[in-house]
């Protein structure tokens, strides 16, 4: 089968195109996603191909976008809405927390909607275009949270997210949009939500991570191995909620040393949840204290020098791994 070099944002576009083609109940809407193709071009060409009734622009109104999606999802449509940046979703997060996330528990009626949200730093977006908010979303009952790191996973998980009967926050790391490419076949199968992936084997430590940090961790693990300091497993969680706890615990059992990496804030970050899981269920397997490497509790700074200091990277992961392996 011929392979095509595919960026993550192109893979998202392929996933959306497949959903629009195969599922007449799928509609896409958001700000600038129509003829313009979206701020990051994730919806490029989709309005032209599927028409304005199914792919359309809205006013700037995140709460009305979420609210309308909830209304549509409860009436037989399968809306996929785009936040231009995840940061802007916080003006309307009450719709997800209180309306979408509670609907099935209260009424037994499903809300099959997906929110696509570009997130994360590394592009000098400053405090309001770089936020990494997965911990907020994971805190909400009734909502699922997916965060792919590779193009193949992105398109395959997006289909599963959209076909899930629940509200799903689908996080797309915008640094990865064009910095990560894979050679992909034209035919592909969906990947179920809630399944983590070992993307590098190793037996001396594991990095539990997701999103852009998967790629930083892979570089750091490669360097550690080349230096002969040990072999490091990298576990890409892919779905944060529901979390693949079995995969996490198996990785801890296989390595006995745990480094957790994310580019979101430290206090109440998703890493705290992972550390708690390991402490509660795999404490007896640990040869060293669990280590978290995260952004500090600081607004995302703009200047490249500051942002580099703010965001974990292969260099800081490498240093943390050496310390962990030396414990």
């Amino acid at each position: 089968m011929p392979l095509a070099e595919t960026t993550l944002v192109e893979a998202i576009n392929q996933g959306l195109r497949r959903l629009l083609r195969e599922r007449p109940e799928v509609v896409l809407f958001g700000e600038d996603i129509g003829a313009f193709g979206g701020a990051f071009k994730a919806t490029l060409g989709l309005q032209q191909e599927f028409g304005e009734a199914r792919v359309f622009d809205t006013p700037i109104c995140e709460s009305a976008i979420f609210g309308a999606a909830i209304g549509m999802a409860t009436q037989g449509l399968r809306p996929i809405v785009e936040l231009q940046f995840v940061d802007f979703g916080m003006t309307a997060v009450h719709q997800l927390l209180n309306n979408a996330g509670t609907m099935h528990y209260r009424t037994g009626v499903a809300v099959p909607m997906t929110v696509r949200a570009p997130c994360g730093g590394g592009i000098c977006g400053g405090p309001f275009h770089s936020e990494e908010l997965e911990a907020f979303f994971c805190h909400m009952p009734g909502v699922k949270v997916v965060y792919p790191a590779f193009p193949a996973d992105a398109r395959a998980l997006l289909v599963s997210a959209a076909l899930d009967p629940n509200p799903v926050i689908f996080l797309e790391n915008k640094y990865l949009y064009r910095h990560v490419k894979e050679w992909l076949p034209a035919d592909w199968e969906p990947i179920p939500l809630g399944v983590a992936q070992v993307c590098r084997p190793g037996s001396d430590a594991v990095v539990l991570t997701y999103g852009a940090m998967v790629h930083e961790a892979l570089r750091a693990a490669e360097q550690v191995e080349q230096e002969g300091a040990g072999t490091v497993m990298v576990l890409d969680l892919r779905t944060l909620k529901p979390l693949d706890a079995d995969a996490v615990l198996a990785a801890v059992a296989a390595t006995n040393r745990v480094l957790i990496v994310h580019e979101g804030w430290r206090t109440g970050g998703f890493g705290a949840e992972l550390a708690a899981l390991v402490a509660e269920r795999a404490f007896h397997l640990l040869d060293a204290p669990v280590v978290r490497l995260t952004a500090p509790d600081v607004p995302v700074p703009f200047a490249p020098e500051l942002e580099r200091a703010y965001r974990p990277g292969a260099d800081t992961i490498h240093a943390a791994l050496l310390e962990l392996l030396d414990y």
């Binding site: 009734a53 109104c61 709460s63 009305a64 976008i65 979420f66 609210g67 309308a68 999606a69 909830i70 209304g71 549509m72 409860t74 009436q75 037989g76 449509l77 809306p79 009450h94 719709q95 209180n98 309306n99 509670t102 209260r106 009424t107």
Partner: peptide
């Protein structure tokens, strides 16, 4: 008939979207 949540105004876009969906059908 949609069950309200306590956040005032929050149901208004929900009904709007629900009507849009029904009319498409």
């Amino acid at each position: 008939v949609y069950p309200m949540i306590s956040h005032l105004g929050a149901m208004l876009p929900v009904v709007t979207g629900a009507v849009m969906a029904r009319r498409r059908q």
